[in-house]
């Protein structure tokens, strides 16, 4: 009985705080994406000829986002029946978009006009629990093209 109570409390805490964190994060992502829309980010390997006199440098952005207890349980149940794991989809979506935003902020600080050759690197950080997904790390990196004055 006591164990069930603990489980239900954790589930409720995870659901409540997890939901709150997720909706707050999405709001911030959408607002910042609007602000940074003028900075082009492309996965193209070669920049167009227009950028041939720009300086270039590596820019990176990374984020580690943790699952909440509710997501862990929901994904565990989903594992029994198969199908889309919505709980983890939104987690990864948030992490990717946040990583791109941080990379863009890095590029904007350098005065860049565009970021080319965008690449992602995703890795999971296992928790004490061992098997389950603890948290996920996403790194976004690319080459920022910075206009050089006087050329």
């Amino acid at each position: 009985m006591g164990q069930l109570l603990v489980f239900l409390t954790l589930l409720a805490l995870g659901y409540g705080f997890g939901r709150l964190a997720e909706s707050r994060h999405y709001r911030s992502i959408i607002a910042r994406e609007d602000a940074l829309r003028s900075l082009l980010v492309m996965p193209d390997r070669m920049p167009p000829i227009h950028f041939q006199n720009h300086g270039s440098t590596l820019v990176t952005g990374s984020v580690v986002i943790s699952v909440d207890y509710f997501k862990t349980v929901a994904a565990g149940l989903r594992g029994l029946f198969g199908g889309r794991v919505g709980a983890y989809e939104s987690l990864l979506d948030r992490a990717r978009r946040e990583a791109i935003l941080r990379m863009q902020e890095d590029a904007r600080k350098l005065g860049a006009e565009a970021v080319f050759n965008l690449k992602f690197e995703t890795s999971r950080i296992a928790q004490n629990a061992g098997q389950g997904l603890g948290s996920v790390e996403v790194l976004a990196y690319g080459t920022a093209l910075i206009p050089v004055h006087g050329r």
């Binding site: 990374s62 943790s66 603890g134």
Partner: peptide, 16 residues
């Protein structure tokens, strides 16, 4: 701290 965060969710700033 990360263990606690695994219950509540959110960014792990220390790890980042």
């Amino acid at each position: 701290m990360a263990g606690l965060k695994n219950i509540f969710g959110g960014e792990l700033k220390g790890y980042t």
